[in-house]
Design a protein around this nucleic acid. Sequence first.
DNA 1: TTCCAGGTCCGGC
DNA 2: GCCGGACCTGGA
Length: 286
Amino acid sequence: MSDAIRVDGLLDLKATLQSGQAFRWSRDGEWYEGVIFGNLVRLRRTPEGVEFTSFPEPEDAFKDRLADYLGLSDDLDAIYRSIGVDEHVKAAIERYPGMRILRQEPWECVVSFICSAWSNVRRVSTTVESLSAKFGEPIATNGTMRSAFPTPEQLAATDEQAMRLLGLGFRAKYIPASAKLVAEGRVNLLALREAPFEEALDAVMSLPGIGDKVANCIMLFSLVQRSAFPVDLWIRRVLSDMYLGEAGQKMSVPKVRVWAQEYFGPYAGYANHYLFHDWRNAGKRS
DNA sequence: TTCCAGGTCCGGC
DNA sequence: GCCGGACCTGGA
């Protein structure tokens, strides 16, 4: 049986689920299939909102967590008014109205973005699926076979060599090391949702394999820190082209980030993701 | 074959 | 603090 979530504001499922912030969603016609909170989830947009199925948890028990995951409580109108004062962001918003920032599970987000270092979206997706299949709890259905994302404890029990066998390369040693710190409670990820930006940044960056860029991805996509601003190669180029000029290429990552946070304001992270997604799709438009 | 992909870490000024 | 180089792997 399926259930439904009513959506009053804008929601673009494709742009939200397949814009490089999450890595386990695939599209099959109008349906999207993924694994979140240990459940196999299928969902599609309807005129009234979102129709979905979940397994193994019954839909009525899963509904609220899915709505929260999709970021439906974010006030997009207010966010657009805030960041839309920038003409480039405004143009991107007009091309992808309803793209939302998700509220992912922090641990999965940590590992996914450690894997993303000097890599690409497709390869990260492959790696995340391999990690789940090998170390996560299987979700037995009569259809496709998928697994929950492995817990910190499950990954803390692995080692660098096991990670290298999955093709993680130089990122291999960071996963078990970070898993141990989280499993031991040295870093309480969920608690950082309530922490001030700088405090959360320091805590996330204390995990091995996580620098300023990856930490900001984790904070933006899973810790509900909407002012977080990941500065990657491409965002640096975009900002240099638009505002910073030649100097932008020479500024350190934290300096570019702080500039962007002051310029775009409390929803800088939303501005970042719109610019990033718009840039990624620029080639497909022209 | 050569080059590059959503960086991080380490050692030297 | 800032700067340069090394680092795994897979696809074009």
